[in-house]
Design a protein around this nucleic acid. Sequence first.
DNA 1: TGCAAATCGGAGCGCTGCTCCGTATCGTGA
DNA 2: TCACGATACGGAGCAGCGCTCCGATTTGCA
Lengths: 198, 198
Amino acid sequence: MSTADTPPAPSGRQRSDVRRNEQKLLDAAAAVFVRMGIDAPVREIAAESGLGMGTIYRHFPTRADLVVAVFRHQLDALAVAADNPAAADTPYEVLRRWVHRFADFLVTKHGLAEALHSDQAGFEALHNEFVERLLPVLDQLLKASASAGCTRADVRAYDFMLAIGNLCIGVETFPDYQARRMIDLLLAGLTQTAPAPS
Amino acid sequence: MSTADTPPAPSGRQRSDVRRNEQKLLDAAAAVFVRMGIDAPVREIAAESGLGMGTIYRHFPTRADLVVAVFRHQLDALAVAADNPAAADTPYEVLRRWVHRFADFLVTKHGLAEALHSDQAGFEALHNEFVERLLPVLDQLLKASASAGCTRADVRAYDFMLAIGNLCIGVETFPDYQARRMIDLLLAGLTQTAPAPS
DNA sequence: TGCAAATCGGAGCGCTGCTCCGTATCGTGA
DNA sequence: TCACGATACGGAGCAGCGCTCCGATTTGCA
């Protein structure tokens, strides 16, 4: 299940240029992603970094691996964001804030939301990484809120997470679309303690 | 604003092969879309129809135009589906049924939901066609339900429509994802007469 | 300093969407 | 019935993509 785990430095026996180039690549990729979005051509990243195509693909076998590596620390920040209980907040409020933070993250990175749900080969790695890192967090938040009686308990964290991600799709393509409102609507649906009237 | 309006047969002055080939193309495209999804290569449709690439692009300047043409009658059916009030139903129930029907339509056509929100050039035509045909219907359903006091009135039909479409994305790529449940959750959020607790 | 092993670079492959123009077909007027 | 101009067809070809492959280059140890 290893995606791009930056194998834990086998024992310092790495050549010096390898570490140097990896950093160059990450910096270049980050810059290009901001400028041209997640879908930027790999050649563009190669040009930006001053390295060759082969070098990129040896470090990151797949584009998704590169994307994951670039956003890893932001993913980490998101994963621990639910750990500071922030005094007197209802569990629902904590959940709500985290969901908005997650949405902001997706929207900020051009095309990330789209890529996450793309069926293009190779992008399952991206999807898997997000699920692995964030699903436990969201699951815990949902359960806490449900236990406190704030929200219903019959919503699976997996569905909910993909739904949030999906709702973020198109904010750049269709400027009139207000994803935030729809996310709030989904959150509102959560507060019903019983299923919607059939 | 004309997308692929199948110009109303200028006056029968069309060569006979033109009409024949257009039908061939529509049939072939429909078959290929079912078999390989909306994203099927154009060459595949050419092969299936026995016609050449040039013929396809002369009839349908863009892939989106072809897609619109193939699904047009189903779009029409959806647009009038809200017209039979169906006896003793609450306006919310009518809205709910229509939304599910819309979602089923999107899910059934492989990749349609994804294409609708794609930022690929040319697919705005597809998006526009959907908005033009279906937005008035959804708007009317939302307003009726709100007037009857079933649902809140501060939700824009445009946002809601895109949200439904977005929630349908990924049902094929991620078999575990239950889009239906998330659509129900969104509908549940609608029944709150006041905004969610802040 | 020399040399094997590791790494790099970019030409090249296969696949797209879409264009362009020589060729084939159609329908009309003689 | 036939011939000819207008119209439509077909598919080679272009540009751009992700990714591979292997000869050239660099590195670090002895």
